[in-house]
Amino acid sequence: MRTLLLASALLGLVLLSLSTGRLWLTPEQLWSGLRAGPDGDLLLWHLRLPRVLAGVCIGAGLGLSGAVFQSLLRNPLAAPDILGVSQGAALGGVAAQVAGTATMIGAGLGGLAATALIFALSVSREQGLDPRRLILYGIGCGITCSAALSILLIRVGEAAAGQAMAWLAGSLNAITWQETWMAVGALALGGLVLLPASRILDRLEFGDDPARGWGIALSLWRPFLALSAALLTSAMVALAGTLSFVAFVSGPLAHSLSGGRVTLWGAALCGAGLVTLADIATRVLAPSALLPAGIYTALIGAPWLVLILYQKVLRHS
C-alpha cells in the first residue's frame, strides 16, 4: 500500500519534471506533446523525456544498491557513496575514458575493486566482518579515489574540466536516449538480481548467527550481494557521475516511510524521487548555471547524515 503511494508520488514528480524547464508546459501541452510522438514534439521527446527517465532509473539503481549495502552490513551509514564505492567507480570510469575503452567497463571494475578492497581489509578471521572498520576504510578509500580522479582530470586537460565537475558532482545535463537505455538495462539487470534477495536481507537483520541458523550460506551470499550492488552503483555512476548521498538517504527514508521493514522497492522509489527532485531543482532554481544535480542531492543528504549523528549524540547523553 505504502509502496503504491510512493509510486504515485514518484509519478507526480516525473510529470512535474517533464513540464518544468526554460519552457513551462501546461498539462494539456504535456499530454498532447506525449501523444504527438518523437517526431511531433522535439523538446519533450529528445530533451526532457530521456533525461527524466534516466534520472528515475539512475536514482532507483542507486537507492536499491544503497539499501542492499545498508542491510547487508546492518548499518544505515554503510552506503556505497560513504564507503567509497561510487568514487572508485568514477575513478575507473574516467580512467577508461582516458584509455579509450568503454566507460561502463572501467566504472564497473573500479567499483568492484573498491568494494573488494574495503571488504578484504575489514574482514578478520576471528571476528568476521566489522562494519565500523568497513566504514572507516571506506571513507579513506573514497578520499583517495576522488583525489586521484581530480589529478587524472587535470592531466586530461583544461577542456575536460567542465566534464570533470559533472563527474565529481553528478549531473544529468548531458543525457541522451543512448544513456537512458543503458540506465534502463542496468536497472533491470540489477533489479532481477537484487530484488529476490530481499528475503535473505530480511533475515540478515537479525544478525549473522541467526541467519546461519536459517541455513543461509553467509560467506557466499554476502560477497555476491555486495559485489552485485557495487556493480549496479558503478553502472549508474558511469552514466551520471557520483550523485552523492542518494544511495545513502534512500534506504533510511524508505525505512521510516514504510514502518521498519527492509523494503528494496521503497528504497528504489525514494532514490528515483530524490534524483528527479534534484533534477527539477537544477532547472528551476538556477536555470542559467545548470548546477550539477549532485549538488542538490548533497544538500538534501548531508543534513540527513548530520541528523542521524545528532540523534546518536542525544541517545548517548
Partner: peptide, 10 residues
C-alpha cells in the same frame, strides 16, 4: 570522520 564528511559535503 562521518560528522566531518557530512559538514564538509554540506
Amino acid at each position: 570522520p562521518l560528522a566531518g564528511m557530512a559538514i564538509s559535503a554540506l
